[in-house]
Amino acid sequence: MARYQRPETLRQALTQLHDNPNETVVMAGGTTIVPFLQPNDDETVLLDIGRIGELKNLICESEIIIGSAVTLKEFLTYARKQENPVLGALYEVASHIADPTIRGQATVGGNVARGGELATILLALDAEIIVESLDGGSRRIHLKDLLLDPGVTALGHPDDLLIAIVVHNQKYDYIHYDKFTKSHLASIPLASVAVAACDRDIRVALGSHRLFPERLSLVERRLVERDLTVPTGWGQLGGLVDAEVFALTDDSYHNHIIHVLLERALMGPPSEVNGQ
């Protein structure tokens, strides 16, 4: 069976990762790791970072910093008290991930690292991640630059550890997140869409359709001069959406869902401004 290590400090965790980068699997909540543990796997070292205090930060100042080992439930409890629109938008997304018992275990870092629903909205909010390793020190990477290709990330070191997620605490004109699920709201979506607009800078992210969410750069460029709070025709924009989405996935069912979600996000009524 796999071996288990639970370091008490960040330094201990980084040292373990540095010494055994290829055999080590990092886990905090464990909800996406434990179901896939193999009983005959003698080589893997499970590195449980779930109790490291340095990874439990929750800060809301000029930047919003969320430690990677913060559980979704801890994040929801914190975000509910802050009356901050960016945290409010993240709260809406996090409160519909999985079910309440899983939200008590699963972590923000885990959700982002596997390209979950938080990663989609964080991508639209142009979030950064802080990673650290013994050799490389602490660095910031834009979430949009993290995934270069399926299975290939911008992490420069095999022993990089996700420390925190950073979002700029700024005023947005429009934040929207929507998803389509097969059954109830808490189940894993077939597709999700996030849009954030701020000072004519509009970011559109698509999630759940592939391994990791991605930005729709062609659509973003077309939207630059549009005021999303004023409903206008779908027309040419819909054609552009289809062209860009079809290049990402050739599944017509998924494409239709994404088309509908994007139309709703970009043509939505003014009442959806600021994630209300």
Partner: peptide, 22 residues
């Protein structure tokens, strides 16, 4: 399914998603 739910430090969690070391 939630059949394995326990209280861990008073909070309901699914024990099939935890390793015993946690």
């Amino acid at each position: 399914c939630g059949a394995c739910t326990i209280l861990l430090d008073g909070q309901p969690v699914k024990s099939c998603l935890l390793v015993s070391g946690q």
